[in-house]
Amino acid sequence: MKYFWNLFKNIDKILVFLPLCFAAISIMMISSTASQGHFVFDKYVTMQLVAYFLGFIAVGFILLIDYKIFENWEKPLYIVSVLLLLTVYIPGLGVEQYGSRAWINLGIMYFQPSEIVKITFVILLALYFCRNHDTLWSYKGVIMSALYASPFILIVLKEDLGGAIVLCFIWLAMVFYAGIDYRILGKFAVIFTLCLPLVYRFMASHQKERIDAFLHPSNLELGGNYQVWQSKVAIGSGGFFGKGLFQGTQKELKFLPVQKSDFIFSVIVEELGMIGGAVIIGLYTLFLYRIAKIAYNAKDHLGALIAVGFIGMFGFQIFENIAMTMGLMPVTGITLPFISYGGSSVLANMIALGLILNVGIRSKIINF
């Protein structure tokens, strides 16, 4: 017991407090999308609260397990993760939503396997780079690491463009930290850019439509542009101080689509103004800084890589979601971490938080 007590004394209290702030913001804004003028305790609020409750239980459980235990699980974890992604193609289990077959029906809820696989993907890459960090100074080493990651990226890409891009940024952040030769990375970036037209050819029709919409923002007939247009109207109408909590008109009149998840940042800025949006960005900046601090102080390379992987995951998702609400990035269906509605997303984010805190509490010498 004394061992665990000494471990928990090392916990990053700010990283524990911030998700509580995000949870409060999430509940209030999800409720706001359901009504005008007052708080509504509807089924979406209930599901979000349940997801957070289960998430905090998961964090507590994860903290009891030394993250180095994953060193013995790499092969089975890799196989199980790939199989989990493929469950969306099982007849009667996999379901299609928002144009993507990326969910499975668990009866009481829809679950998105790729959300959990983001977590295992970070762990697997951390284990891989620990074993092979000396090879990253060669083209072969970089290619082998990309091939190691490619089954996850390709499976997710088939249905969820946003999820695949998140996996790519996780790999990029971790390979960068692991010690890649920057000249090699630059050459691969050029090759990847030249291959983008080829990648576009093999995208699903709804994915191509979103790219076309981003490249032609004035064409409201293209899918996604109407959403972005209404999002920018909502953000602009909020002004500096906003219209007031529960008083947003764009969301109330249903002009703003997908309010609870993809475009919840637009609801926040419409009702709480530029100040509210700045506070959200400030909280996320502090959140990423605390993770970076844990990565810097990690006791080993594995712990540092796990933390860096989650910086890549959270950092890109935050940037992409906020940027797409302003028309600065394509609409990809990436949600705002911890705030957007979604049980799978919240639970995955809390598991990631548990692993980050796990690295943090074991970064210091425990005295008995």
Score class of each variant (00 low, 15 high):
G273S: 00
T249A: 09
S205N: 14
L54S: 03
V142D: 09
S345D: 12
L7D: 06
C168N: 07
I155H: 00
P217F: 07
V95W: 05
T193V: 14
V269T: 15
L194I: 10
E74L: 09
S218K: 15
L222I: 08
C195S: 12
F129M: 07
Y226F: 15
G244T: 05
A146W: 07
G315E: 04
S266Q: 09
I153K: 02
W171Q: 04
A58E: 01
A292F: 15
I191F: 14
V175F: 05
G276W: 14
L85E: 07
Y341H: 13
K364V: 02
L328W: 10
F287G: 07
L355G: 06
V346G: 04
K13P: 03
G107I: 00
G248A: 02
G239H: 13
P197K: 02
L127I: 11
P76W: 03
D66W: 01
F176T: 13
F111T: 04
L147K: 12
T332H: 04
G179N: 07
F319T: 10
I318H: 02
F188P: 00
A213F: 07
T285N: 07
L125A: 07
K140T: 03
F176I: 03
D134A: 11
L245E: 05
E252K: 13
V50D: 03
L347D: 00
N367W: 14
L194R: 03
G312A: 13
G327L: 03
